[in-house]
Structures are given as C-alpha cells and as structure tokens.
Design a protein around this nucleic acid. Structure first.
Length: 944
RNA sequence: GGACCCUUAGCUCAGUUGGUUAGAGCGUUUCCUUGACAUGGAAGAGGUCACUGGUUCGAGUCCAGUAGGGUCCA
C-alpha cells in the first residue's frame, strides 16, 4: 500500500530492493516484519540432533499485567540474547508465558465484582467465583504478551505457558505429592501441616511467606504502662540501694493487645526483677486477672525498663516464650484484624488501629498509662496489599526446602553463574538462614492443595502421625476413589510454589510424552535466566532447588540445574530515583515510547543506560538518541543505494568477490580493522553480559568510523571509475556485517534494510544467516588475498587530526564555511608523501579549493599538525594581535603537558621501573610536544 | 545491628587485569540547509573523577577510613 509522507514523498513497500525513503518510519516496518516472522514461525525452538541450544524461559508476568519499563528492559535483554544465539547458529528457544498471580489477580477480580455487582466472592461461592476469574483472564489476560510482540520479542509463541494451564497445574500438584511423600536428610517429610505463627494479611485474608513481608519504618507511639504487683515488693536501684516497688513498667506499641496478655517476662539474670519471677501482676486492661511473671532470656534487659508483656497470640517472640512457659494463648483478633469478644466489651468489634487509640484512652483513665511518646519502629507490611501484617496462629502447610546444600554447591562451583557475581553472596546468605516455607494460601484462585481429609475429622487437631495415616488423610493427584467420604483442602498453593517449576514445567515435565514433544532433553537445562534481583529469593533460589529436586532425577547435577547463567538486570527508576510504579504514575507507557521512537529506538536507548545489574534512571533522551541512530543507519543505507547500482549482495562470498585487494587503501584497511574490532568487542560483551559496552561500540563504529569518516572520504573515490565498484563492495560488506551485529538490538530496521539492500532473499530473514566471528572473517579475508593492515588505522588517525586542525584554523579565522580557501603545508618529504595521496579527499573534507606544498615559511595564520605546519590563505588581512593571542594560548596549553611529561621522565624511579613500552611512549610524546612547541614559537615570532 | 551497591561534565551514564591530554548521549555556545541524514554536519565551552589517608615510578581504577545516597537481610 503506498504511503504518502508529510513532505509529499511517496513510498511503496515491495519486498525487495525498493527505494529507501528519506527518513525511517518504524510503524509500518515493525508491523509488517513481526507478522512475517510469525507467519514463517521462525521463532520456533527446534533443535537438530547435536545442535547447540540456547534456552531462555521468560520471567512470567502477571497474566493480567500490563507492560511497564521494567518489562521492557528485562525482555529486551532476553530478546537480544536469544537473537544473538540464533545468529550464532544455535537452536534458540525462548519460552513465553504468564503467571496466575494468586493474590493480585483474585484481588483485582474481587474489586471488579464489588464494583459491578456489589458482591463479594463468598456471595458467589468458590466455583462461580473461579468461573469469573477465568472469564476475566480470557478477556483481559495475555495483553502483556501482545505488547511484547510490539517490542519485537522473538518468543516461541506456540510454547506459551500459563501457570494455571491443565498441564502445568498437573506439574504443580505432582511436585506437591512428591514432596509430601519424600523426606529430607533427617527423615522428615518435606511437607507438613502445622499450627504456627504466620504472617497474616488482614486485607487479603491469607497467610504470607516471610518473603512477602516488607519491613517499613513506621511512625507511631510507644506507651509506658504500669502493671501493678499483686503483692508490693522491692527492687535494687542503680547504686544498689533497695527501693520499694509497687508496679512493673512495661513499654509497648500495641496496647490494644493487653487483653491477650498472659504474663510478664523479665530476664532471669536481671538483678532488678529476678526475685519477682513466680509473683503476679494485675492485667491493666480487659478482664482483671493476675498474670504470672516469668524469667526468659529472650527479654532484652536494656530495652525500656527490661520488662516484656507476653502476648503469645500476637507476636512471634511472645509465642515462643509462651511455649517455653506453657502459657495459654488468647487470640483477640479476627481474620480481618478487628477485635473479637475476648478483647472485652470496650474494644470488641473495633478495627485494630481504632482499638489502639481507645485502649490508650482507657489506660489513661485508669491511671495505668504513665507516658505516651512518638516512636518509630519497623513494622511488617504485606508487600501486595500494603497494610501491616498480623502475626497470627493458624494451621498452614509448610515446606522444608529440598536440596538446600546442593543449591549452594552449584553456585559455589560455578555451575550456575550469577551476573554480576556479587548476587551469589546474597543468594548463599539467604540459603544459610533459610526458614521453612509457608506454601498454603487462603485464596481460591490458585492450585488447590491435593489433600483430602476424611469426613468428620477435626482438621485443627491433626498430628504429624495423622498426616501419614491414609485413613485420615489422602494425598494424590486425582483424589480419592471414594470422594463422597472425603473433603478437599480449601487452601491453594502460594503462586511461587508453581512458578518455581517454570524452567521444566514449561518443557513438559512431568509427563514423558510431553517432555519428548517439547524436546526437553535438548532445551533443559536452560541457558540464561534474565530477571531482577528483587526476586532472587522468591523465584531464582527456589527454581534452583526445584530443578535439582525434580528435573532429570538421578542425573549428574549439571543436568538437573535449571539454568547456567543468571543475569540480573537493574531496576528502571524515574528521574528522582524512585521505582516506577502504577500507584506513583511515574512510568511512561512503553507503547507511547514505541509510537514516538520506534521499538528499535526504545530498545537501543534503554540498553545504552542499562549497565550490568545496576539500577538505571530512565532518561527519555536516550531513547530519542536510539531513534536518531536508527535514522542514521537508515540514511547511510539510503546513501549507499544512491551511490551506485546495487550489485550481488546475496552472500558474503559474493560481496567479498567484489572487493578488489588491489584497490584497498588505508581508509579501507582502517575501516575493516574497526569492523573486526567491533565484532570482537561484541563477542566479548556477550560472553560477559555487558550490553552497554556492546551498544556503545556499535554506535561509535557506525556513526564515527563508518559515516563520519569512511563514507565522507569515499565520496571522492566514488568519482573514480576504477575504484567505484570496489568502494561500494566495501560498504556493502561493512553494512552487511553491521546489520548482523545490530539485529539482536534492533530487529525491525535491520530486517527491513537487509532486504532493501538485497542481503536476503524473499521469504528469508536476517536471523537465518550465520554471523561471522571476527576470527572467521579474518580467515575469509585471507582466502580473498586480503590482510587487514593494522598500521593503516594510525595513518588514518593522522589524517583525521589533520582535517580537524584545518577546520579549527578555518573556524578561528572566521571562514569555517568558505570553500575557496587555500592551504599550504610546510612538510618534509615523508609527511608530504602521506598528504599527497589524500589531497582530494582532504580538500573536500575541510572545504578548501586547494592544499599544496610549500617549502618556504609563509606569513599566514598557521597551525601545527603531525604532518607539517599548515598555513591558511583566506585572502583577507589577518589581525596580528589576534594571531599572537591564539598562538600564545596554544603554546601555554601545550606547556602544561610538556612540564608534566618532563617531570615524569626526569623521575629516576619512573625510568627505572616503568615498562619499556610506557617509557618509550612518554619519550616520544615529549619529543612530539617539544617539536610542536618549537614550531608554534617560531610561528609566533614570525607574526608581525 | 549485619551485608552489598552507588557518588566521574548542567543532566543521564560509560570508563573489565593501574599507564599518553578521563569519554558518550542529551543540554549549551558559534557557524552551516553543500544532492544520504537538520532525527544532520563542523568547531567550541564545560570535569580538584564525593572527601581523607595509604600502596605504587604511576590511582577515576587497588586498600583503609569518612560523608552523602540507595538496596537487601535481621
């Protein structure tokens, strides 16, 4: 379909060798090529026998999520890796998918339900509610996967997985059953059920794992309270004097829990109180009862007055103290953190924070409150719901992690490498202090735990032994044969207890047939996991343990690990350094950026600010620069097309066949040298996951080495009939190799240009081409009789400096734009020889009518180059004073460097200890600087 | 309290085994629409590399400490 641009330019997209337009318009190109790639199924992970594979599993985004900048960075990185692997000839497989995200999704649907129908989930019942969630997922889900296509992600979409898929669910339940039936090193079942203190989220009404709790400093109050002794006593003061004692002073931030106090605790060695152990105090709030004073080493005698109120139901430490002293448990909180009747009539029914205020008032009235002062302490918040969690004693399912030691060892041994390496320390530290994992959630959306209780059994009172009694508990994938006698567990599994199977669950595990169909043997272990360090515990560590436990059982450890490399990308932050988040509204919509700058521009721009594992502040100007770079590439190719007839570009051999070794000049050699260097740099960058370095080199190679210099100097050579075909061949070669290197970073524009310049046949794609290694290209050059002359780079560098100095001189003389000026070079024979060969292109570059040799010293403005003194004849009278000032300034600047170099060289320690190359470099530098200064001084003296 | 990271130009960032005069993009100053590209070209200004000390012939780079910022774990 013809497209008319604003400037009236009309373009028609035909498949091959169309005329290149004036500027790059990403939209059409992106849509067209993505559709073509998909149609050709060229992202399919297919491995020939023996072919090296490269596998990535996507960190599955929430099924109802939308693309944000973090996804863009993370997925661009994965796409860069997978596309590069394809170009290297590996069987690349990138498995996409989504996570059912239990709490997040259920909360979202519940909110929607409330808003549209005014109902809660319990009004609908479990089955009906789940139907609604699935409908929601079908309507709103996978949006993010479509967005990833717009970014250019080359996932194998036929493998798209979802953690709630039937197959995947079966994998999740299988893992549960296997862990339930297996034991750890101490012979204990990996999975058990127990009434323990958990992190309870009063908003989501479920237990959370420790990892889902976030400690936040929170401003509140601390209340200093009197607990009256039933029998007054004495205590020892600071000087050992005996003083009367009528009450104990307790400080607490949670006075509303006093009705649940069952004791006071003091340190057993505390001289002030140890004689009181066994005595009693009056509870100051709630039912007026006597509380025992117990001695426990968990009490910090230095904190506050050294007396702790013991509230076993509402604090983890208190619970443990309660257990040690066989104290009762009074739970006065409901699931939603309102107070129940045990709190007493004054507080019952109140919300916890209101109850806190109320109880402080009551205590003040009764005289028990001594003081109330502002206080900041760390409070655990539900990461998802953002409310303070409550420690709560409930029955939950727990996992004793399998393979903890092995999981440490594979990282220590380098079988799994983390990039940057420092994260392995964080990982190991977590494993050293690992706690059992609370895997049950009181939700409906998720994998329902495959446990059935015999009807009529009291679930609250089941013992460890009962759990192993098949008459009381049934655990299996498909449930009991006589379902009428059983009731299934209501809880579902933590979302992470499904996604920890992701690297093999997406490859067919545990079904042998499915594994074969997915080519599990070729693609597992996966190669690289790219993710954020914020989920190193949630996901990375757990996947490693799961892989070791379940994948390729019995095989050597290197076949069981889930991945070989973990690349931690940084977190994308806003200009103020804040995390980008929906609530802050500080994240630009990536699709807006794609519309404004093109997907390639966004990808390239973001990678330029994404150093290894460091957080990045998002800077839109980088994305704009990415777009500009694409446009530069586009126009360089456009210029190539306009410079001469296109010849056979269909293969590297064909292009090399058009390169004429007899016509290779210094510029060709320098350019090919830079190309080889860029290729080598990329090879090194990919090996070390250093993307910023790779993008920088690509940028400078193409823009500076190729466009700014080679293309400009080649303009003169293109006028020579004998050299023209050769020069075009060199350009075709370099553009081809550049497109191959650039394709992983900018797949759309490279694909388009690849075809426009005839590198690829119709219905073929860049990624089907094998990229050469630098060494491989050197060998191909050699076959063609070409040896890249490394010394040419230095000679070209001299010419670059020469033109810069010539332009600078013109600018100084205010004739920067005049093109009819004359230059005279006062040069020795070798210098003139170097210049003579390049006069036409130099004249063109600097904008001169003529550059010629002079053997006489002239009275003209001049500059000193490494190829001789260069005089500029503008035809206009110069101002001697200004000339003297200019030369003096330059001499002054040069002097500073000479002084420094002289000082170094006159230091005997330096001359005796520095390596010869460094020493020689310094000597040569000094000689050059001194010669230049001498010449500048001569010029200065000559100005009259 | 423990661990880790960061501090380089006005802004965002490179700078991987220590070695000429520390780089890029954006911004900024001057000049330029010359047939690839103004999404461009040319020339320029702009840095005590947070601070202090140490190791070394030589430190942005290595070591120790200080200050500020950030993250994780308790």
């Amino acid at each position: 379909m013809p497209r008319v641009f604003a400037d009236g330019c009309v373009t028609v997209h035909i498949f091959n060798m169309a005329e290149i337009t004036k500027s790059y318009e990403p939209k059409d190109v992106e849509d067209k090529w993505y559709a073509a790639w998909q149609e050709a199924k060229c992202f399919a992970g297919r491995a020939a026998p023996g072919q090296e594979t490269y596998t990535i599993v996507i960190p599955p985004p929430n099924v109802t999520g939308i693309l944000h900048m973090g996804h863009v960075l993370n997925n661009t990185l994965q796409d860069v890796l997978i596309r590069r692997a394809r170009l290297e000839g590996k069987a690349a497989c990138w498995i996409p998918g989504t996570d059912h995200a239990g709490i997040a999704t259920q909360t979202m649907v519940e909110k929607h339900l409330k808003k549209t129908e005014g109902k809660g989930r319990r009004d609908l019942g479990r089955d009906e509610f789940l139907k609604r969630v699935w409908t929601w997922r079908d309507e709103k889900g996978d949006h993010i996967l479509r967005q990833l296509r717009q970014l250019g992600c080359s996932c194998d979409w036929d493998r798209t997985a979802f953690t709630m898929d039937a197959d995947y669910s079966r994998a999740v339940l299988t893992s549960f059953v296997k862990l339930f039936n297996s034991t750890d090193a101490q012979g204990r079942s990996h999975i058990y059920r127990g009434k323990r203190m958990v992190n309870w989220c009063p908003a989501s009404l479920t237990a959370l794992s420790d990892e889902e709790v976030e400690m936040r400093p929170t401003k509140g109050f601390i209340y200093k309270l009197r607990y009256e002794l039933v029998e007054p006593s004495t205590t020892k003061g600071a000087e050992g004097n005996v003083m009367p004692l009528t009450h104990l002073t307790v400080e607490t931030t949670r006075p509303e829990t006093i009705p649940a106090d069952v004791a006071l605790a003091v340190h057993p060695d505390d001289e002030r109180y140890k004689h009181l152990i066994g005595k009693t105090v009056w509870r100051p709030l709630g039912e007026r009862v006597q509380l025992p004073i117990v001695g426990d080493t968990a009490v910090d005698p230095v904190f506050a007055a050294g007396v702790l109120k013991v509230t076993p139901a509402h604090d983890k430490v208190d619970f443990e103290i309660g257990q040690r002293h066989k104290l009762p448990v009074i739970d006065l909180l409901n699931a939603d953190a309102t107070l129940n009747d045990l709190a007493g009539p004054a507080l019952a029914g109140m919300e916890r924070f209101a109850a806190r205020k109320k109880s402080a008032e009551l205590l003040r009235e009764s005289g028990a409150l001594i003081e109330e002062k502002p206080y900041e302490n760390n409070v655990g918040y539900s990461q998802r719901a953002g409310v303070p969690i409550e420690p709560r004693l409930t029955q939950q399912w727990w996992l004793r992690y399998p393979r903890i030691e092995e999981a440490k060892q594979v990282v220590r041994d380098g079988l799994i490498q983390m990039h940057p390496e420092r994260w392995s320390k964080v990982y190991l530290n977590w494993l050293e202090n690992i706690q059992d994992w609370c895997i049950s959630r009181q939700l409906w959306w998720g994998h329902r735990i495959p446990v059935w209780y015999a009807k009529g059994i009291d679930r609250e009172k089941l013992t460890e032994a009962d759990l192993r009694d098949p008459k009381k508990i049934h655990v299996s994938l498909d449930g009991p044969a006589d379902p009428e006698n059983w009731e299934q567990e209501d809880d579902v599994l933590d979302t992470w207890a499904s996604s920890w199977l992701w690297p093999f669950g997406t490859l067919g595990w545990p079904d042998a047939e499915a594994q074969k169909a997915a080519n599990f043997d070729a693609f597992y272990p996966t190669t690289t996991l790219a993710t954020g360090a914020d989920i190193i515990f949630f996901w990375v560590a757990r996947m490693i343990m799961a892989g070791l436990e379940f994948a390729n059982p019995g095989a050597p450890v290197e076949q069981r690990i889930p991945f070989k490399h973990v690349y931690f990308n940084g977190i994308v932050r806003d200009k103020q350094g804040r995390k980008m988040s929906k609530t802050l509204g500080n994240s630009p919509d990536p699709l807006d950026l794609i519309n404004a700058y093109g997907a390639d521009g966004l990808r390239f721009g973001l990678l330029q600010i994404a150093p290894l594992g460091q957080d990045v502040k998002f800077d839109e100007s980088r994305v704009e620069a990415g777009k500009h770079f694409c446009n530069k590439l586009w126009n360089a190719c456009r210029f190539r097309q306009m410079s001469g007839e296109m010849a056979d570009n269909s293969s590297l051999a064909a292009i090399l066949g058009r390169v004429d070794p007899a016509h290779l000049d210094d510029d060709d050699h320098a350019l090919l040298g830079a190309l080889l260097d860029t290729m080598a740099t990329l090879e090194k960058s990919f090996a070390g996951f250093e993307f910023a370095g790779a993008t920088q080199r690509l940028y400078s190679f193409f823009w500076n080495d190729f466009c700014d210099w080679y293309v400009e100097v080649a303009k003169a050579r293109l006028q020579e009939p004998a050299a023209k075909a050769h020069v075009l061949a060199v350009q075709d070669l370099v553009i081809r190799e550049f497109l191959l290197m650039f394709e992983p970073f900018a797949p759309f524009i490279t694909e388009e240009l690849w075809h426009l310049l005839g590198y690829g046949a119709e219905k073929s794609f860049v990624q089907e081409t094998r990229i050469e290694t630098a060494a491989g290209l050197v060998a191909l050059f050699a076959k063609r009789g070409v040896t890249v002359d490394a010394a040419a780079t230095g000679r070209v560098e001299q010419l670059k400096q020469f033109s810069t100095l010539a332009r600078e001189l013109k600018a100084d003389q205010s004739v920067a734009q005049k093109r009819d000026v004359k230059f005279f070079a006062l040069a020795g024979q070798p210098e003139w020889h170097a210049l003579e060969k390049n006069l036409s292109k130099l004249a063109r570059l600097v904008g001169a009518a003529e550059i010629s040799r002079t053997t006489e010293k002239l009275s003209l403005p001049a500059t000193v180059t490494s190829l001789g003194t260069l005089y500029l004849d503008t035809g206009v009278q110069v101002d001697p004073a200004a000339e003297r000032a200019r030369l003096t300034k330059e001499i002054h600047a040069l002097n500073k460097h000479i002084v420094g170099t002289e000082a170094r060289l006159s230091n005997e320690a330096f001359t005796s200890k520095a390596p010869p190359a460094v020493l020689e470099g310094a000597r040569k530098q000094l000689a050059d600087q001194q010669a230049k200064r001498a010449e500048l001084e001569r010029l200065l003296a000559a100005v009259q």
